[in-house]
Design a binder for these strands. Sequence first.
DNA 1: AAGAAGGTCAACCGCTCTCTC
DNA 2: TGAGAGAGCGGTTGACCTTCT
Length: 331
Amino acid sequence: MGRSPSVENGLKKGPWTPEEDQKLVQHIQKHGHGSWRALPKLAGLNRCGKSCRLRWTNYLRPDIKRGKFSQEEEQTILHLHSILGNKWSAIASHLPGRTDNEIKNFWNTHLKKKLIQMGFDPMTHRPRTDLFSTLPHLLALANLIDHNPLEEHAAKLQAEAIQLAKLQYLQYLLHSTAPVNPSPNSHFGILERDSLNLLNLIPSIKENPVSNSSLMENQTQFSIENGISQLLHQPINSSPLPDPQVPFNFQTPLNTEMGQGSNNFTMVSQEDNPPNSPWIISSGSSSTLPPLIESSTSNPGDENSPSSYGGSASSWWPELLFEEPIMHEIP
DNA sequence: AAGAAGGTCAACCGCTCTCTC
DNA sequence: TGAGAGAGCGGTTGACCTTCT
């Protein structure tokens, strides 16, 4: 493994021999490493100090833990990576006996691939923007009973995604059900019923705290709890104009029709969206279903604009079934 | 059984950060 | 305050290993 031995500037490179290891260990045990640059000469090694430091910290240190990563360690890495990103040394500091190099390798060879296979962006830990192509994963994860750490992590993220979509739609409904003088016979009554039904879904977030820890620890990411709190404290008859305090961006005209049939949506990449919004689903070419969110960054016809994906809302959000077309008025 | 393809991981490279003078 | 040296970090490489065909 490693590289073939070579000599550059009189210094040896490549794999370490047992003799070299022994010299390095004996020297450090006796004198400490001191200056790494000076160490090779003092230890009688024909290596550069950097190579010695790497060999010691990644392989020879007595407190190094070898062997397979446990499920607990795997879970920790996933969790920390979702917060810290590729800060391997920072992640390693939370895993006694594991080196940054080892964790980095484990990530690149195992976890990253698994996340990709499950439809997640390994950098953001969010479902990839092509939501409809990853729908099968999403649905499969909903039925997970296996408590594999990765699947658990994935399930949390997917649950978070679904709950976020629900929250977005709920807020849309709250805005759209803002009657000045509600009448029991008006269409608003139906929409209020839908809103209440949606509100009933919310406790599932509290009961099943999705990625709470990571979201809470990473203040730059959207917090579901904050979203709920803000949502539930918002007056029902609030202005239909977007509330800057609410992390969703509702600028959708409300003279759209809730109904059946396929609808096109555009998933807008996370990078294009406000920092508080993990992603945005914007309206696409069809208007038979109210857009969940109108994205200001979406520009149909523009080549650089996000791609459109066909799909029906009820297929990716099975709990929200529209039994009858409901018209609602422009506030 | 043998070659190909893909996976693994130790080690290197180059950049950045921190410390000292 | 700026320059230089040393240390640390993340990305990449490439030889060996394992699995597949």
